[in-house]
């Protein structure tokens, strides 16, 4: 299921939706001006792409990240916070003079640092497929182990008895 959204058009005090089948009667909805909302969406995308660019730049040149980069990114994040806070402020005018379309390669957005990603092939190749025989074997192993423990217990009991006799 994807996120439900529909475009619509204002007619008098009501709105006619293009995809009414997505909603249910009496459902609470939020209505945004389409142009402004797309602008807001693209604005935040632009900021995030900026952060990814800093990351990619450092990774490609193999330069370690420094405090300056961190401050730069946090500055950008501050802007995102502001954008999100101002979303419901009716007094805020959106600047429609330009519109950002992200043409960044998706490859830059992937996380390359997690160990699971790097060693996934090796890790997944080693997982066993569990069959009934394997389960049975496993139970047998447990029984054997319990048997061994039991034997050890008994032996220590015998030893104790021997030591008491002496």
């Amino acid at each position: 299921m994807k996120m439900r959204y529909s475009y619509g058009i204002v007619q008098g005090k009501k709105i006619i939706t293009y995809q009414p089948h997505l909603f249910q009667n009496y459902q609470d909805l939020l209505v945004f001006p389409a142009e402004d909302f797309r602008k807001w969406h693209s604005q935040i995308n632009e900021y995030l792409d900026g952060v990814y660019q800093v990351n990619a730049h450092k990774q490609e040149k193999k330069i370690p990240v420094g405090g300056d980069d961190l401050n730069l990114v946090l500055g950008v994040l501050c802007e995102i916070t502001l954008e999100m806070e101002e979303l419901f402020n009716p007094a805020k005018e959106t600047d429609n003079t330009y519109y950002y379309i992200s043409n960044m390669d998706e490859d830059y957005k992937k996380i390359k640092t997690t160990f699971y990603g790097r060693y996934r092939y090796k890790i997944e190749r080693k997982t066993l497929h569990i069959t009934p025989e394997l389960k049975y074997q496993h139970i047998l192993e447990i029984v054997e182990y319990a048997h061994k423990l039991w034997g050890q217990n008994n032996r220590s009991l015998k030893m104790n008895m021997v030591s008491r006799k002496e």
Binding site: Y7, G8, I15, L29
Partner: peptide
């Protein structure tokens, strides 16, 4: 098939809007 608005005065006639469930 229609949406009833709490604040119809915010929008102009025939303006395009985008609707999400809350």
């Amino acid at each position: 098939r229609k949406v009833y608005l709490y604040h119809p005065e915010y929008f102009n006639e025939h303006e395009e809007v985008i609707i999400f469930t809350r």
